[in-house]
Design a binder for these strands. Sequence first.
DNA 1: ACGCCTACCTGCTTGC
DNA 2: TGCAAGCAGGTAGGCG
Length: 304
Amino acid sequence: MPELPEVETVARDLQRWVAGATIAGAEVRWARTIRHPQPPERFEAEIAGATIRRVDRRAKTVLLHLEDGRVMTVALRMTGALIVAPAGTGEDPYARVVFRLADGRELRYRDVRKFGRIGLWPGGGLRSIGAGRGARSRRIAEGTTTYRIGEVFSGHGPEPLSRSFTVERFAERLARRSAKLKSLLLDQSFIAGVGNIYADEALWRAHLHPLRRADTLGERDVRRLHRAVRQVLREGIANRGASFSDYVGADGEPGANAERLAVYRRTGEPCLRCGRRIERVVVGQRSTHFCPRCQPEPVASEPA
DNA sequence: ACGCCTACCTGCTTGC
DNA sequence: TGCAAGCAGGTAGGCG
């Protein structure tokens, strides 16, 4: 569910509301949500008494930095949400982990589909939570080796909103890949944080067909895509995220960005630029929306 | 490197 | 109305 803008919204909300708060205790209601440490009772014991220093985001993962240096990672996956509420209000059947805060509030990890994962990593050393394919990330994810903090998300590609994500760097990375643009944008080891919604939106904005091969892009295409990716993500953040089924900010309120999407879930509706009907195809098992006129089909004669 | 598949889960929408 | 199939924002891991 949540992609970069949604996760960023949650992290900013939590930074405002729970930075400085102490976790008096935790109750794990769905054991498999806890990745580490195992068993989940150990997680409950180890998180009790911890104070949250700062909350931020890497890729689509929320990072809660604790005063003692440990880091709690929350990967929301499809339907995860972190919600701050007064204790005891409206029992939530989908609350998988409940953190009781010392000030009387609760931080609830809610997750209808139970795909999300929470980890608690030792201070000064962390294990990667993995980042898609590639021997490097797989080895790190499965191994028992402890890594330095700087290596935590080593399997992830660049943060698209960071200063270091330049057009030149993007161009180099694209030129080395023959995959379809849609698949690449979803590949977290290629670029971090983009998911199905924002991939479609960025491609529409850049006038690029989702099936276009990355290594066929010209300089202008790359420039347009670079700008488009950053724009759609920034606008998503400005609107507190796009909400469909389950996404909500830490205030429990949905975001406003869904109404501003140009192609995502608009199959059959007119393109906002040219009026042509938006089409839906499946690429890499993900539904993909595009305008057949604004995003022309790559020609078959292109090098295979 | 890449595509394709399955798995993890539950709920909502769609079509007959 | 009822029921089953299809769909959903993510990602890990296996195979070819």
